[in-house]
Structure formats: C-alpha cells, structure tokens
Design a protein around this nucleic acid. Structure first.
Lengths: 104, 104
DNA sequence: ACAACACATAAGCATAAACTTATGTGACGT
DNA sequence: ACGTCACATAAGTTTATGCTTATGTGTTGT
C-alpha cells in the first residue's frame, strides 16, 4: 500500500463520490448504489480498490457487507502532507488544524 | 480544478516522483529529467498535468522554465483532509501508532 | 541572420483502467 | 431443500492515459 495507490483510488470521480458517501456514514454496497448510475459489479470493484488502498474497510453482516471509512488511508495522506510542510501557507486554518493533530 | 484532479495528478508514479523532486527545491524541466528514464515531451506533459492540478507552478527565466511546488494544491488537500477529521483517531498517540504500524 | 537550445504541442500508438454481461458464493426466508 | 438476495469474481470490450516521434515556439549566443 503505497501513497500513489491511495491517490489512484481517489483519482476516479466515481470512487471519490463513493468515498464521500461513506464519510457521511457506514453503508452497505446496495445502499451506496442508490442515486448512482452504476452497476452492481462496478460498485463491488470500486469498493475493492478503495479497500486495497486502506481508505475503506468492510464488515460482513449476514448477507450484507457494511463499508466504512478506514482511518488508515486518511492518516497516510496526512503524514504525506506533513512532508511538504515547508510549502504550506502559514495562514491557512486547515493546515493549522492538521498540524495540531499530527504534532504533539 | 477539482479535488479528484489533484489526486489524479499524484496517482501516476512518475508524476509522484517529479513532485517529490520539486519539493526538494525549484528546478527546470531538464534538471528534473536527470536520472529519470523519461523523454522531454513526457516530462513536459507531466508538468502540465501537475500545473493544471495546482500542485506546481512555473516561472519562465529566459529559455528555461523553473518549476516549483505550488502551495495551492497542498492547501486544497489539507482542506479536503479536515473534512474527514471525524475519522481520525481521537487520541493523537493513536494516530502515531497507526502511522508507525503502516511503515512495514 | 542563423544555429543551437529549452520547452510545448500534435498526432498516433500501446497499455491500463473502468465498464459490461455472465456466473459463482454464501446467507436468508419459506 | 429451494429460490432469492447481497455481493464477489471472471472474461471480454471500450475508453482513458501515458508514451512515442515529429514539429512548433520562443530564447540565446555567435
């Protein structure tokens, strides 16, 4: 699981939307399909990519599989960002927040 | 310039390396090619993708074009990350443990 | 003015990635 | 036990992406 795999997972607009939906709350694969013009296999494949990137994790529940955001992937991106701290604009609040959480 | 464009730009391993080299210091396109098995047009195309994603900016200097990291792209990623702050481990040491565990 | 240089752009090709249809697997209800 | 449901996997097709060669544009040195 390398950084560029995470970026690759989020590079596809469809997967990006799937991830955003999951960020709103855990959901099974069928619920994720609601309102998305996407076939069942396509959804399954996208979820596999997100899972392999460490962005999402699954939990089987009977014949349903619930998916949810996996902090692992997010943490990896956060750490990646800190490598380029020298280039951050000092006034951006988002960066301050991030820094505070990453540091002591 | 949408988030998934940034992720797409960093998804390619070659572009990822180019960005890392630029993070070490501003450089022109030819200097970037040193030690990379990549043609001049390919480099030019990659730089265009990074520039359109807001990750890199250029400054013409005579017949050279110096490239450097653009904080705009990094700030966008940081902002994106903070949206999912709810999923970060609540305790900071938990985050550090998580990051450490991912090192192997 | 002209040649060499640094880089960008165009067009075509080759590969990868996302989709499709078809089928497999395990869980549930009757 | 059997059919249905929720999802995964396989195989093939289409589309996107990164590469190549060829050429264009602007700059520098002579």
């Amino acid at each position: 699981m390398i950084e560029s795999d995470i970026f690759k997972a989020l590079a596809d607009p469809t997967r990006y939307v799937i991830f955003e939906k999951l960020a709103a709350g855990r959901m099974n694969a069928s619920a994720l399909r609601d309102g998305m013009a996407i076939s069942q296999p396509a959804m399954s494949q996208h979820l596999a990519v997100l899972r392999n990137a460490g962005l999402v994790r699954e939990e089987r529940q009977g014949r349903f599989v619930n998916y949810e955001v996996d902090p692992k992937g997010l943490a990896l991106i956060a750490r990646w960002l800190t490598k380029y701290r020298a280039y951050w604009p000092s006034r951006v609040d988002a960066l301050k927040t991030l820094l505070k959480d990453m540091d002591q």
